[in-house]
């Protein structure tokens, strides 16, 4: 397998729902690509389309009112429109997915060992004994204490963090090239989250998996991601390497996000640079830039739809001139601290 080819290429992905209140454009023209062994962080507010993007990639949007268009190529092969059987063969084997609530992936009536064994044997012809040995090794690899006895436990006998680890072990059982994780640590305590994030970092190093990690926590992204997508109202508004995005964010929404997070070190600002207002209703999108109604820098041009642009892999969807954005950003931060 040549490693210079991207693992996943998503082009102009759109997901909309036909509802009584009109068309809800949940995802509008999302494009990105993912290299082998790359960890991509996806951040954005609640309802910005993060989960729908992942579900569309996995072919898991089943609502009869949903319309999914665009292209999702995995190792050169188009996934959109693929038959259920063909998709099932890819899911769980080459692409695995974990969710915020580990119970969505676990059956309460079977031990976690049985569930991992079943998963292994669904894709590989190995004996139960061998599959069981692999299950124990995987539970050990994800840091579950005493894996030999944990393998025989039922989900309800495990804590939230242990369950999420069991689900990750299950996801890893087939050595997936791509792991898609939707808020995998959001329901966990920070000390447990730290353990799971370390585990996700190790996946790439030890198992060679690429990861798409959806989170609303920029701290989590700074911790594990190589590259970051920022989503707003169904679109990617900024994309860049982690260093680029954290050092010199380009989009006014990203500026607002950073200003909204209280610092853990150094002086405390008298006030946080909150973003005024709230995200638009998807069924009543403002004309042009969706961030416009909350944006301090909105101007004439913004009644049109900005598209992603920029150099060096760092792109944003905003009509402000490319030069001088960091100065503008500073004026925003300065306005937040009253004299």
């Amino acid at each position: 397998m040549p490693t210079d080819k991207p693992l996943l290429v998503v082009e102009n992905l759109c997901v909309s729902f036909l509802t009584e209140g009109g068309v809800v454009p949940a995802v509008s023209g999302v494009s990105f690509s993912l290299e082998q062994r790359e960890i991509l962080g996806v951040v954005g507010e609640s309802g910005s389309g993060k989960s729908q993007t992942l579900l569309a990639i996995m072919g898991l949007i089943s609502s009869p009112n949903a319309v999914v268009t665009g292209s999702v190529r995995f190792l050169g092969r188009e996934l959109l429109g693929l038959k259920r059987r063909a998709l099932d063969a890819i899911r769980g084997r080459q692409i695995a997915m974990i969710f915020q609530d580990p119970m969505t992936a676990l059956t309460p009536v079977h031990t976690i060992g049985d569930q991992i064994i079943e998963q292994i044997r669904a894709h590989e012809r190995v004996s139960r004994a061998i599959a069981r040995k692999r299950a124990v090794d995987l539970l050990d690899a994800v840091g579950l204490p005493s894996p030999e006895s944990a393998v025989d436990r039922y989900p309800h006998q495990l804590s939230g963090g242990m369950r999420q680890r069991a689900v990750i072990a299950m996801a890893l059982s087939c050595n997936p090239a791509l792991l898609i994780a939707d808020e995998p640590t959001t329901a966990l305590d920070v000390t447990v989250q730290a353990q799971i994030l370390e585990l996700i970092g190790r996946l790439r190093d030890e198992f060679g998996s690429a990861v798409i990690l959806v989170t609303h926590d920029l701290g989590v992204v700074a911790e594990v991601a190589d590259r970051v997508l920022v989503m707003y109202a169904g679109r990617v508004v900024e994309e860049g390497g982690k260093g680029q995005l954290f050092r010199e964010p380009l989009h006014p929404y990203a500026w607002g996000l950073f200003g909204s997070i209280p610092p853990m070190h150094g002086p405390r600002p008298a006030r946080l640079t909150a973003i005024p207002g709230s995200p638009p209703k998807l069924s009543q999108m403002p004309q042009g830039c969706a961030f416009g109604p909350r944006c301090t820098f909105r101007h004439q041009a913004c009644i049109a739809q900005p598209s992603l642009g920029g150099a060096g892999g760092h792109r944003s969807a905003c009509f402000l001139p490319q030069d001088g954005r960091q100065d503008l950003r500073r004026t925003l931060a300065a306005g937040a601290v009253p004299a």
Binding site: Q193, A194, E223, F246
Partner: peptide, 11 residues
């Protein structure tokens, strides 16, 4: 607890 908090800062 403090050291487990992910910090949104790369530098």
């Amino acid at each position: 607890l403090r050291s487990a908090v992910p910090v949104p800062d790369v530098d």
